[in-house]
Design a binder for these strands. Structure first.
Lengths: 246, 246
DNA sequence: GGGGCGCTTTGATCGAAATCAACCGTGCAA
DNA sequence: TTGCACGGTTGATTTCGATCAAAGCGCCCC
């Protein structure tokens, strides 16, 4: 199995999710609440709600890709490591995002929770059949896949050509924008990831990330109540820094 | 128009292509030769064969994405630049690859030829309609898109976490494998791209790329007849170098 | 032939970020 | 309460690749 030992199906906790499952429409964690019961019956009947604690694997690179997930709460990191342990994080997934959608026979990267997280899980075969019957949903997924590629290329530009300051500023702005889009904007922005995960995303070391946070703080560009609570004080400046000005 | 001034429709030169167009099946540059005339009539009737000289733009980031291309001969680079000119090349396209497939309303990157190149061009609307009628082709494209994403992530790992030697070794092996897959393997491997383009792909400078080529040559790992003709002498060693051993 | 241009190579030096090394604060378990 | 593990910050030093500089080599055009 790809989900960790402590993940539970149909967990007994209840409550609103950060985002309803975009496939089966579930709005609460343990209740099936599809938008269109007739069409989606075969799919949601088999959908399973899962939740994980912080720092648990959802799946690992190379495992057979038997499931597709729709994240409804929490944050998940996609990454891949070299044999000697050097790790590159590709991105941080937010509620509403799909996990494992692009996989062929096997998952191409590791997926790990960065916080408590919840997701709807679908069997790949069931999911594919559902897409065949629902071209509108399928079209939406094609768009989502294109946007993943666009994001990956943006990230390639960051890793290949930006300085350390530009990388960290870009990371902060990007996270802020994506959180804002999904109405998850909190003030201050709370970061579930550690300095080590930010370093592995930006292609830097934890020391460099820490120093740059310090510099941004002393400049007055951001405020740090603690290491995880970032308040952007000067967005325009942060934007300039992310593009190589200053 | 996105194609350059010197591109010509239905060019009068003839001859076998490196790869037949994977959509309309054209095997020669100026002759429509579809695999299944009945089904594909609406598409191939409007397909246009183009060719470009070296270093010509196919399209630029931000332009309205009106066309989809299938490269049949030559090589094209996808890239994106920062305001100050720093450029990141995302990949090198070979015959058989699609160009501009993942674009939404506008192209997300610059596409430029690295050599003389030929392609079949389709109107996006026509192409989309064709895909709706040919789900098998559409499925193939979904797989192609997934593999683009996998490749982009491999490249993120290269840019974020590999050393200069590892990057150049990975670049050479990757190009070699992809050329081999498509029966374009030449011995020695001939590189249509300059040191500057290799640098922009690997996130290095031309001087560093040149020095590493020199080092690989003096080690006996590769042989360089001239700057563009690379013969891999010790593939196993190159593989080890690309992964951090040695 | 010669001169200039674009690309590559090679050498010397510099600098941004990595590495090495303490040290701090917090939370947790003995 | 102590001790320790973990994450974060900060300082000293090193290093890898960038930058600066110069020269070599086709290649094309005059």
């Amino acid at each position: 199995m790809t989900t960790s030992a402590s993940s539970r199906d149909h967990c007994s906790r209840r409550g609103d999710l950060a985002a309803p499952c975009s496939v089966c429409g579930a709005k609460e964690f343990n209740i099936c609440q599809p938008l269109d019961p007739a069409r989606q019956a075969s799919l949601y009947a088999r959908a399973v709600r899962l939740h994980w604690a912080r720092r648990e694997p959802v799946f690992a690179a190379g495992q057979p890709a038997r499931h597709v997930y729709n994240l409804t709460e929490g944050m998940v990191a996609l990454s891949r490591s070299l044999a000697d342990g050097r790790r590159q994080i590709f991105g941080f997934l937010l509620p509403g995002d799909f996990i494992g959608l692009e996989a062929g026979d096997a998952y191409g990267c590791d997926a790990e929770t960065l916080s408590d997280a919840k997701a709807c899980r679908f069997d790949r075969a069931t999911f594919d059949a559902f897409l065949r019957d629902n071209p509108d949903v399928a079209l939406g997924l094609v768009r989502a896949a294109s946007s993943d590629l666009a994001q990956a290329r943006q990230h390639e530009l960051l890793l290949g050509r930006k300085t350390a300051v530009e990388r960290v500023a870009s990371f902060l702005l990007d996270l802020r924008n994506r959180a804002g889009e999904r109405h998850l904007r909190t003030q201050p922005l709370s970061l579930p990831m550690t300095r080590s995960e930010i370093a592995d995303y930006t292609g830097l070391t934890i020391e460099t990330v820490s120093r740059i946070f310090g510099r941004l703080k002393s400049q007055g560009t951001i405020d740090l109540a603690d290491a995880t609570a970032v308040r952007v004080l000067d967005e325009a400046r942060l934007k300039r820094l992310s593009e190589g000005a200053d």
